[in-house]
Amino acid sequence: MTQNDIQIINEIEEIKNEAILTLAKLINLYGLTLSESRLFSIMFLENNPMTLDEMSQSLGMSKTSMSTGVRSLLDAQMVERIWKKGIRKDLYMVEKDLYKTFSNAFIENWHSAIYHNTKTFNEISEQLNIISPKVDDPELQIALSQYSQKIDSIIHFYKWLAEVFKEIQEKIESRQ
């Protein structure tokens, strides 16, 4: 191999590293850790399914870390386990449609946040409704009533958000 070939290989590696880092920054916005984001990026930019050993070697991280990362990516429906005849190790491959991958992850994160936050604010509203009749002080009643109205407006906002994301999800599903 010539010196020129070695230089070109090094330049290609730098380009690949920049692509992985840049894509990982985007994916990180979807609620994954930076290592999970880099893992997805490497898997996406590879043309072939990868084993945990190959992922570990590519990222220079432990196989246990790769297993944890893949599990998160499986949960987010960003990768899938595949089978190939003659290969005994599990292989993983990313969803090649970035639109589908990111929209699924994005919407799932929002659905989860909306569900949990709505549940919490409904519990707060119930607590306020229990406490409110016990209050004798007129100023405290007014303050509590105003606070309760704000909590109700937050719950209404979350219901609206849930509808918005339901519509977005329906549009995405009709695209597929």
Rank of each mutant, 00 (worst) to 15 (best):
D5T: 03
L26P: 00
L32A: 01
I12N: 00
Q57K: 10
I20N: 00
S67P: 04
I12D: 05
E14M: 06
E36M: 06
L29T: 11
P49M: 02
N109I: 10
I131S: 02
I12S: 05
F102P: 04
I42M: 03
I151A: 08
D152R: 12
N17S: 13
D53P: 02
E123R: 02
V164I: 15
I42P: 00
E14L: 07
E170W: 13
I82K: 08
L39E: 09
D136Y: 08
R81H: 14
Q146A: 02
E11V: 07
T101L: 15
L34K: 07
H156D: 15
L74D: 14
L52I: 12
S65T: 14
E54M: 03
L140Y: 10
F106L: 12
K84Y: 11
A105H: 07
E126F: 09
I155S: 03
Q77I: 05
L26F: 04
S56D: 10
D53W: 06
V70H: 07
L23C: 08
N17F: 09
N47L: 11
A24W: 01
F40I: 07
L29R: 12
Y99P: 00
Q77F: 11
K63N: 12
M1C: 08
T22I: 11
S125Y: 06
N109V: 10
I9E: 05
L45A: 01
I142V: 15
S103G: 05
S112G: 06
S65F: 11
I9F: 06
I8S: 05
S56E: 10
M50L: 15
D5Q: 03
E46V: 00
E46K: 04
K159S: 15
M43R: 02
P49Y: 05
E173Y: 07
Q77K: 06
E139C: 09
T64L: 13
E11Y: 08
I130Y: 10
K85W: 13
N48A: 05
I12P: 00
P138F: 09
D136N: 14
N47D: 15
I172E: 14
K85P: 09
D136P: 01
V135L: 10
S145H: 12
I155K: 06
L39P: 01
F165T: 06
K16W: 01
V164H: 12
L45V: 09
T33Y: 11
V94Y: 02
L21E: 15
W110S: 01
A162M: 14
E14C: 04
S112L: 07
